[in-house]
Design a protein around this nucleic acid. Structure first.
Length: 310
RNA sequence: CGCGGGGUAGAGCAGCUUGGUAGCUCGUCGGGCUCAUAACCCGGAGGUCAUGUGGUUCAAAUCCCAUCCCCGCAA
């Protein structure tokens, strides 16, 4: 089966790798164009490009697929199926309709919940205890295609985005291989999504990252872990400096008798009062510094009991 | 040449503006106290202050110049 892969970030790599290692004929990798990133605006190739190049897979980085812009290449590659994982562009009908087996998307949620750009982060931030992977037959909508197969993955109390990302990445790669062979065997029946149950996982914006200590401790904890290790939830110390929070734990102690954001204790971790309960900041990233444990942060004497984070 | 912070003992930091004895909180080693301890007390080891054997100076962690490395923002 000739497979054309479309994907961009690390998350897509799990699946591309699985396809290659399973012996599929990956005829090409379509990924986003290199973009200037980081300090000095250096051009950075997306992870999928790096991997594909290393494995002698032809790389395509069209600015757009619309208006037949990719039709010529598509005809030359003649894929039987297109596998799409976190590609980042809309596929026009001319592409969607081309492959015999269609365009299969690996999505990081149990559809129809968390359609959209940031399903893993949103699921964690909203305190879900379970998420998963759905493979589906893509259509013109945003993650609205008919579902093929799903796999469930538990979200533990302290799982952060990275851990869920890796778990779902591995689960997604495995599921896709199953879906592909099921498709080839004709043993899978597409199931339409129940649109009335659909929810959207919007892209993570800056405003989503500001920690609101007025919320209850669980919400604060969920926000932090859903955004860790990138882009990271943040707050500000009394001197106005940025303080990003890498990791929190729910404090065992009960209700906090202090205004939200108040530092309650500094015994190995920074305990901060929330609207209800309190959380322990266990790893942080001060402005202009690197990531460090809360114990180190405290040793530097950059914070005192009674300080208010906001 | 996008903007900015930083490189001082094993860790996290102060000192730099107003050059002149290497400081703080921990860790570590030894001793003491204690039924006991991650608690407390006493003592010690450990640093070419990123690099240049650079410039200024009687004197540079501190001022000037160059280079390397780390980080945040923005995209």
């Amino acid at each position: 089966m000739r497979v054309l892969f479309m994907g961009t970030p690390d998350f897509a790599l799990f699946t591309l790798k699985a396809l290659v290692e399973a012996g599929y004929e990956v005829v090409g990798a379509v990924t986003q164009p290199d973009k200037p990133k980081g300090r000095g605006y250096e051009l950075q190739p997306p992870p999928v490009k790096v991997y594909a190049t290393e494995h002698q897979i032809p790389v395509y980085q069209p600015a757009t697929l619309k208006n037949g812009a990719f039709d010529e290449e598509l005809a030359a590659l003649a894929p039987d199926v297109i596998v799409v994982v976190a590609y980042g562009k809309i596929l026009p009908l001319s592409v969607l309709n081309y492959p015999r087996y269609g365009c299969i998307n690996v999505h990081g949620s149990l559809l129809p919940q968390y359609r959209g750009a940031a399903p893993m982060q949103r699921a964690i931030m909203e305190g879900c205890t379970e998420t998963g992977i759905t493979t589906m037959l893509m259509n013109e909508g945003l993650d609205t295609g008919d579902m093929l197969q799903t796999v469930r993955v538990a979200i533990e109390e302290n799982d952060n985005f990275e851990q869920i990302h890796d778990k779902l990445g591995a689960a997604g790669a495995a599921l896709l291989l199953e879906t592909l062979s099921a498709l080839a065997d004709g043993t899978v029946a597409p199931v339409a999504q129940d649109d009335t149950k659909a929810t959207y996982a919007a892209k993570i914006e800056k405003r989503d990252c500001l920690i609101d200590f007025a919320k209850d401790a669980h919400t604060v904890h969920n926000t932090v872990r859903g955004l860790s290790p990138v882009p990271l939830g943040f707050t500000h110390t009394p001197d106005g400096k940025l303080l990003k929070v890498i990791e929190t734990r729910l404090a065992k102690s009960g209700a906090a008798l202090a205004a939200p954001g108040t530092v309650l204790s500094l015994d190995g971790a920074v305990e901060v009062a929330c609207g209800t309960g309190s959380v322990l900041l266990t790893r942080v990233l001060p402005e202009g510094k690197g990531r460090m444990s809360a114990a180190d942060y405290i040793r530097g004497r950059r914070i005192a009991v009674g300080d208010v984070l906001k």
